[in-house]
């Protein structure tokens, strides 16, 4: 179904700054579709982002109140906004490096507080904006500009991290990819609707910095790889036992 999402977009922000093959545009569209399907009033939402490619999804594209903050701190800014005005729907959209490396502390404490924020983490497994350096989510063996021989560090599983930090059995924690767009919109709608803390990790490929260094022939191959490597589950336990190499466990793990 083709929807006119123009009313949610600042027309002067197009064309987007995203590279060919970047998944962030798909995520951007999915967020707006979820808002549209839920009939949320975008004027009563605040989009908070940090620094990095993913932070540019809401700022400047969304025709809403947007705040593009300092690197790693969007969750802390969002905490202040939400606590002072709980009537606003406060949504954080940022990247894996921003939310789990420099901003990891704020992420786990927001989960612990079970504060009513929606946190959407676009995970491209690398630092895109700064030129493709190692992220805490980069898989072992992957080449980045700071791990030219391949990464030797084990990565974070962000959903496990957030679930571990969460103080609520009802916190919404889920993961999907930009290939699984129907599911992505469904999960986004759920994340926007639950009463407490929600965290949605969205695997979004970076062909420019990750793909080219790691022997992907084309952006399309990277997107298709998301389909092939995704393993679905409905059980939270699987998150802690899943060991399959080069596969991504997707599903709703909590809430």
């Amino acid at each position: 179904m083709l929807k006119n999402l123009d009313k949610y977009i600042r027309p002067e922000s197009f064309p987007t700054p995203f590279c060919t093959g970047c998944g962030h545009g798909i995520l951007m569209g999915a967020i707006l579709r979820a808002i549209d399907e839920l009939e949320l009033d975008i004027d009563r939402m605040v989009f908070v982002s940090g620094i990095g490619c993913a932070a540019w999804i809401p700022s400047p594209h969304f025709a809403a109140d947007t705040i593009h903050t300092t690197h790693g701190r969007p969750v802390a800014f969002a905490t202040g906004i939400k606590l002072f005005n709980p009537k606003l729907k406060v949504v954080v959209v940022s990247g894996d490096g921003d939310l789990s490396a420099i901003g990891g502390n704020h992420l786990i404490h927001a989960a612990r507080r079970n504060i009513n924020l929606t946190i959407i983490c676009a995970n491209n497994n690398i630092y895109g904006m700064t030129g493709g350096q190692l992220a805490p989510t980069t898989p072992i063996g992957a080449r980045t500009s700071t791990t030219p021989a391949g990464s030797s560090e084990p990565p974070f599983d962000l959903c496990k991290l957030v679930l571990g930090a969460s103080s609520s059995d009802n916190a919404y924690v889920a993961r999907t990819t930009v290939w699984h767009t129907r599911e992505l919109i469904k999960y986004l709608k759920k994340a926007f609707s639950v009463p407490g803390f929600s965290f949605l990790e969205v695997i979004s490929p970076c062909y420019t910095h990750f793909g080219r260094r790691n022997k992907y022939a084309s952006p399309a191959e990277m997107i298709l790889d998301l389909k092939d490597s995704a393993v679905r589950t409905k059980k939270q336990e699987d998150l802690f036992t899943f060991k399959e190499k080069n596969k991504i466990l997707i599903g709703e793990f909590s809430g």
Binding site: V46, A76, T79, G80, K82, N105
Partner: peptide, 17 residues
């Protein structure tokens, strides 16, 4: 907050709210 970085971040967020 969890540190002083987050403290001023939350303050700035609240001011915009």
């Amino acid at each position: 907050m969890e540190d002083e970085i987050g403290s001023l971040a939350a303050v700035i967020g609240a001011v915009w709210a």
